[in-house]
Simulated scan of single mutants.
Amino acid sequence: MSQKGPVSPPYWYGEGRPPLPMQGLSWLYAAAIGARRWLYRRGWRKRLQVSVPVIVVGNITAGGAGKTPLVIELVQRLREEGWKPGVASRGYGRQDAGTARWVQADTAPALGGDEPVLIAYKTGVPVRVDRDRVAAARALVQQGCDIVVCDDGLQHYRLARDIEIEVIDARRRYGNGRMLPAGPLREPPSRSAECDFRVVNLGQGGEDGAAQSSGFGEWQMRLRIDTAVPMVGGRTRALSAFAGQRVHAVAGIAHPQRFFAMLRACGIAVVPHAFPDHHRYQPQDLDLGSQLPVLMTEKDAVKCAAFANAWCYSVPLQAELPAAFWVALLDRLDKLAPRHAPDGR
């Protein structure tokens, strides 16, 4: 497999013990996180509210677990229910990260961040990137949004929230259970119990038995891929058209193996090319050595659109959750203060 850039240390997910220096730093990190959480619980650091409901979708591990597909599906469901959602994001990895800005479908990913640009493209709702999520939420309210969805931000305690949704990778879960940098945890595992909903990302079709990795009180989410969209125009193709063929698969996400496994589950012979999460692609990155079809995630496609060729395809991802999850979530929203109700409800 072609692998470029940094990857998670192998000891994060069970291969050996972390080096002693990493363990020492982990204890210091855990103490700092604990002190910060204590200050917020005591009220010595203030949580700031906005006048509309706030839903935070995040995880307590470093790296991705499937938050963005869930955010996209959540926004679409909220719109169907009559809400006017907006999305707040830090826009990790973008240039000039200290500048707040509105993100649209045609915003350069280097300025808006790859995930915010993808969310704007897929949903069409207002998307605001800002290191200060309170400021981002307030800007969305001023824009006319009556509910704010935060893409990531469980650890951004300063913004008060009404609902927290934790997303968990079914295969990797919490790894070795240690805090950064000795393990993948940004917060202790006990933080999970504080979240209103825990969604376990099983990948496509349970991702080779990962469906067994969900437990009591957890909602299962599957990711579905079934089409490939030409990046320079042309008809959308069913992924089944690539079954039995060799393709280059490109993924610059936190867990690229998940995307490769999903393609293989469709009967496609994958030549994998893994890049770091939030990788800034250059034209030479798509010089893969042979003229095979190139299938990539939508998150990668928004960054490669300017120099894609006729061999390149974007593979849309659809998050699927049980109907009971949406019933429970919408019921929770209905029980909030009447001032939070959208027009017509």
Rank of each mutant, 00 (worst) to 15 (best):
D152K: 09
Q204C: 10
G5A: 10
T297H: 13
H156M: 06
V103G: 05
R186I: 05
H279M: 02
G14N: 11
A249K: 09
G113M: 06
D151M: 13
N309H: 14
N201S: 09
R345H: 14
T61M: 05
Q95V: 01
W311L: 15
R79A: 14
M1K: 06
F197S: 02
R186W: 06
Q49V: 09
L78Y: 12
W44C: 00
T123D: 02
G244Y: 12
Q284E: 14
D226R: 15
Y313E: 06
R90N: 02
L330K: 14
R173C: 04
C304K: 11
N309I: 00
G144P: 09
W12A: 03
T227M: 03
P256K: 09
I55N: 11
H340W: 11
D106G: 13
T107N: 01
R173V: 01
Q104C: 07
D151W: 06
I33M: 14
N309G: 15
V294E: 01
K335C: 10
A97Q: 14
N176S: 04
D106H: 11
D285E: 05
V71M: 09
Q282I: 00
V200M: 10
P322F: 10
A274Y: 03
D130G: 08
M22C: 04
H279I: 11
D130H: 06
A211V: 02
P189C: 11
L336F: 07
S190F: 10
P342G: 05
Q220G: 11
V129Q: 00
E187Q: 15
R237N: 05
R77V: 01
R173G: 04
V134Y: 06
V117D: 03
A62M: 11
L70R: 09
G267I: 12
R90C: 05
E80I: 03
A160H: 12
R246P: 00
G217A: 04
A30V: 04
G34M: 08
A238E: 04
A32K: 13
R128K: 13
N176T: 03
Y13C: 03
R138W: 00
